[in-house]
Simulated scan of single mutants.
Amino acid sequence: MNNTVLVVDDEKEIRDLIEIYLLNSGYNVIKAEDGKEALDILKKENIHLMVLDIMMPKMDGIEVCRKVRESLNIPILMLSAKSEDMDKIQGIMTGADDYLTKPFNPLELTVRVKSLIRRAYYFSGANNEDKDVIKVGVVIIDKEKHSVTV
């Protein structure tokens, strides 16, 4: 199963650049050009991580992040031209898991995505609705049934 990343940025060139690198790293990519479209996609698709620009029309990334955190606990990587410390702090305090400033190295973004997904899904056991079932990568441990499935 490939993880799906939602890339939200009002600049088409940036969405397309990120898509190329993430596709080459084995991720499925869905793109949105604004916050409202991103929220609609999150209702319909199984998204594992979101790359979210802060400065966008209709709804900025900070507001999108707040709305996402009301119901979802997916990793969020903020992406912004704002590089001041207070901007980074605001992004993280709003609920983002990481923050990368533009211009960025697409390889660094790809590594951060991989790291966030690894921590969120493969090692923590988080997001398992059933606490008696532990998922570590492709290994599933069922404590109640005393079984391990690969």
Rank of each mutant, 00 (worst) to 15 (best):
K43H: 09
L22N: 04
A32F: 13
N3F: 13
E13T: 10
F104W: 09
E63Y: 08
E19Q: 15
K58G: 06
D130K: 08
I62S: 06
N2V: 00
A120N: 09
C65M: 05
L107T: 04
T4K: 15
K143Q: 12
A81P: 09
E108P: 01
L22W: 04
V136R: 13
D97V: 02
V5D: 00
E13L: 14
K82W: 07
S80Y: 12
I89S: 04
E144M: 08
I54L: 15
D132F: 02
V150R: 11
K36Y: 14
N2F: 00
F104T: 02
N105F: 07
I92G: 07
G61F: 09
Y99S: 02
Y21A: 06
T101N: 01
R69K: 11
I76S: 04
R118T: 06
E84N: 10
G95K: 03
I54N: 05
V136C: 11
D16V: 12
A38C: 13
I20W: 07
M78T: 04
D142M: 01
K135Q: 06
D34H: 15
V111R: 01
V150E: 09
L77D: 01
L109R: 00
I92K: 04
M59G: 08
D10H: 11
V5E: 00
A120V: 02
N46I: 08
I92L: 15
I141A: 02
P57N: 13
L79W: 05
D16A: 12
I140Y: 03
A120M: 06
L52S: 08
K145W: 01
R69Y: 10
I140K: 12
V29M: 09
Y122H: 04
K44T: 10
A32Y: 11
M50N: 06
Q90M: 12
M59Q: 10
L22A: 07
S115H: 00
K12A: 13
F123Q: 05
P103S: 04
N24Q: 15
D132M: 05
E129N: 02
S124C: 07
K12M: 12
D87Q: 05
D9C: 03
V7R: 03
E70N: 13
N105Q: 08
D16M: 12
K44M: 10
I30N: 08
